[in-house]
């Protein structure tokens, strides 16, 4: 059962309704500056980087605020591998919101990746090779 299925009103939701910001710790806005810094680094040196959102003292409300503020961009990809992972670009191109879930749908890790294209989405040469062998097999089946 997912945690939000339990009918308890948590303060974050309540605070949101009343316009009160009790659920916010104030730790989220500073992340915007860090993301900006990482984006500058990407432009300057092409170096990709990531922020582990699980490693920071952020409340659920903080995460919601950050997600809402960064917004939803044009690209969103879903990866089905031992549970669903979503990689979606925010309104700032090159800033990706990455959420990994396990088979039961619980979030196991969450990152903000600052990169031109997430590494996870690229195909590995070894896997392309395996795919090629499969293609050859398909072609040989044709004759």
């Amino acid at each position: 059962m997912p945690l939000d299925a339990i009918p308890i009103v948590v303060i974050n939701a309540a605070a949101k309704q009343s316009g009160d910001e009790a659920g916010l710790s104030g730790n989220a806005p500073v992340l915007l500056r860090e993301i900006a810094e990482l984006a500058r680094r990407l432009l300057a040196s092409g170096e990709s980087s990531a922020i582990d959102l699980r490693a920071l003292p952020l409340t659920p409300a903080d995460l919601d605020w950050l997600r809402e503020t960064l917004g939803q961009g044009q690209v969103a990809a879903t990866l089905e591998a031992e549970g669903e992972s979503t990689l979606s670009e925010t309104v700032c191109p090159g800033v990706w919101w990455v959420t990994h879930r396990n088979e039961t749908g619980a979030v196991v890790s969450e990152f903000i990746e600052v990169t031109y294209f997430p590494e996870l989405l690229k195909a590995h040469p070894d896997d392309v090779q395996t795919g090629l062998e499969h293609l050859d097999l398909l072609i040989s089946d044709l004759s």
Binding site: L79, S109, L120
Partner: peptide, 19 residues
């Protein structure tokens, strides 16, 4: 491979290692 990469990313996060 992608499932494994995902697992390692999560393991690193759990091990409090940089991404």
């Amino acid at each position: 491979r992608r499932a494994f990469m995902k697992y390692c990313a999560t393991l690193a996060s759990m091990m409090a290692l940089p991404p």
